[in-house]
Structure formats: C-alpha cells, structure tokens
C-alpha cells in the first residue's frame, strides 16, 4: 500500500483569519476518502490547495514522494462544487478540450471523450450546448472532464450537495463505480454520503482535523453502548426521571471511574445514557424502575451511531 499524497502541516490564512490550521493526512492509493465537516470548516480551502488553485500559507503536499510544484495537476482530476463551463461549447467539445489541455492529441481526446460521455449518461446530449444543461447534467459533465486524462486522484468538492434527490442518486452511483478504478477524495457535509461510499474519513472542524481514520475502525473504536429511556408524561414519572438524571450526574462527578453511566442527557423527554457496561447498567436501571413503579413507555438498548459521533466531534 503506497501513499498517493501526504499532507503535512497544511495551513492557509486569509489576512488574519486562519481557514486551515496545520492539517496532516495521508491518502493511500486506491482508497476513497471523505473530507467531512460542517459548512465553513475549511473543506473547500483544503481541496483548492491540493489541486493547486490556492497557494498554501505554509505546509507541504507530497505526491508520490515528490513535493508538489504544479506538476501534481497531471495526476489530479478536479470537480468543483458548482462547475462553470463555456456555455457556448457543446458537452462533447468541452471534454475534448479538457483532454487536449492535459496533453492528449485531438484524436485520442475525442475517442476518450465519447467514451466518457457515454459512461456518465450524456451521450444523448453530447452535441447540445452546455448552456442548456441542467444542474445534474453539468455535474456529470464535470465528472467526465475530470476523468478525461485518467487521473490517479479524483478530487471533488461537495459533488452532490447542490443536486435534487434524483441527480444525487445518479452521481452517487457513478462515484461508486469510479472508486473501483481510481483514488477518490471528496468533501461533503453529509455523513450519510461518506458512510455509503468511503473507506476513510477525515472529519475537520474550524480548520483542523477533529478525527480521521478508516470508517470501520472509527465505528468500532467509538461505539459505545447506550440506553434510551422514555417515560409517560405524567408529573410523577417526569419528576422521577429528572431526579434520577441529577443523581447520576452527581455520581459521575463524584467518581467518574466507578460510575456505571458515563453521560446522561435529557432531550425531548427522552433520556439517553451512555454507559460503560451494558449488563450492569441495564440491571440497575430496571431495578430502580420497578422499585419506584415508574411508568415506562419505551426502553431501548443499543449503540451510538456514527451520526452521534459526528455531531459530538463537530460541536464539541
């Protein structure tokens, strides 16, 4: 397994604002990596630096062991968030042009462009002016022009965020095929997309990396048992619940180590307890509930989802 790109201490500041504050990560060849984070976290800035469109304030990017000097552009295919083309060109002409800019001969570029237009499902519109394309078609055209020189790394900025559900599904389907063939890096603020497509995820927040790793291992490592409890809405039950939570929180503060419950949150009349040992916690809770004759509506035992982790990481 070789590293396609290594990023070390990448920083970008605009005036006094630090958009990206020294991030490090490595993308392995053949992996699909999601750059995940809320709006304004620095995803687009990072991506633009990788593609060479933006000069970093400091830090290094190493492609195949060589420092980035602009030649990395040969390795990269880039699809921006809302790609702008020349509206007076036809779709096919644009992809051919993109190919020729990457150093292909006119004949090679034409052959490859036709193939790609077919592949992204635009062959019926290949001879139409780009000005008349819909948002989803432009996104697919953007993919075709990014892939024309068979790049080693496909970089995409929010590839599906601006699309309607149908267009989204089309593009996600294409990406699922593409990640079999090339290394993919894309940014998104939708956890679900990352979970569906990617091997690795890099979660960034306020310009820094909050968490990174393989999705499966993150899920494994950060999975914690939780108990969700919902009671009837009569006064007695609710009173008991709030006193129980207060009691638990006090116990946690007194002795964090031995307490069964690590976190207790009450939200919309649903109490969520993050627990250490599921068996002991469940037992103790059930005993308390029966002793106090609390009217339980719902009691659920499960595990934290990636969504919970994401929310916790980006809002912490």
């Amino acid at each position: 397994m070789t590293a396609l790109i290594q990023v070390k201490g990448l920083t970008k500041s605009f005036g006094t604002v630090q958009a990206v504050t020294g991030i490090d990560f490595t993308i392995e060849e053949g992996h699909c990596v999601a750059l995940l984070g809320p709006n304004g976290a620095g995803k687009t800035t990072t991506i633009r630096m990788i593609t060479g469109l933006l000069k970093q304030t400091s830090g290094q990017m190493i492609f195949h062991g060589a420092e980035a000097d602009g030649n990395q552009r040969q390795l990269i295919g880039y699809l921006p968030q809302s790609p702008a083309f020349y509206n007076w060109m036809t779709g096919l002409e644009y992809v051919i042009y993109a190919g020729r800019l990457c150093g292909m001969t006119a004949v090679d570029a034409k052959k490859k462009a036709k193939e790609l237009m077919e592949r992204v499902g635009l062959s019926h519109a290949a001879k139409r002016k780009i000005g008349g394309y819909s948002g989803g078609m432009k996104q697919r055209l953007g993919l075709a022009q990014a892939l024309v020189h068979s790049p080693k790394l496909l970089v995409m900025d929010e590839p599906v965020s601006a699309l309607d559900p149908l267009g989204r599904r089309e593009v996600l389907g294409l990406l699922r095929e593409l990640k079999q063939e090339t290394t993919v890096l894309f940014s998104t603020h939708v956890l679900h997309d990352a979970e569906e497509l990617c091997d690795d995820v890099i979660i960034i927040r306020d310009g820094g990396i909050a968490l990174q790793g393989a999705i499966s291992s993150i899920r494994e490592e950060h999975r914690k048992p939780i108990i969700e409890l919902q009671l009837e809405e009569d006064d007695q039950s609710q009173r008991w619940l709030s006193s129980y939570i207060a009691q638990m929180q006090a116990a946690m503060q007194r002795n964090a180590e031995s307490s069964l419950i690590m976190e207790a949150v009450l939200n919309d009349n649903i109490a969520r307890f993050t627990v250490k040992e599921i068996e002991a916690a469940r037992q103790s809770l059930l005993e308390d509930l029966t002793r106090e004759r609390v009217k339980v509506r719902r009691l659920e035992v499960g595990y934290t989802s990636l969504e919970d982790l994401f929310m916790k990481v980006v809002t912490a």
Partner: peptide, 9 residues
Amino acid sequence: AASLILVKP
C-alpha cells in the same frame, strides 16, 4: 470557468 481550466496541467 477559469478554475476548471487552470487545474489542468
């Protein structure tokens, strides 16, 4: 449109 062109080598 320029950014799509300038990322090309």
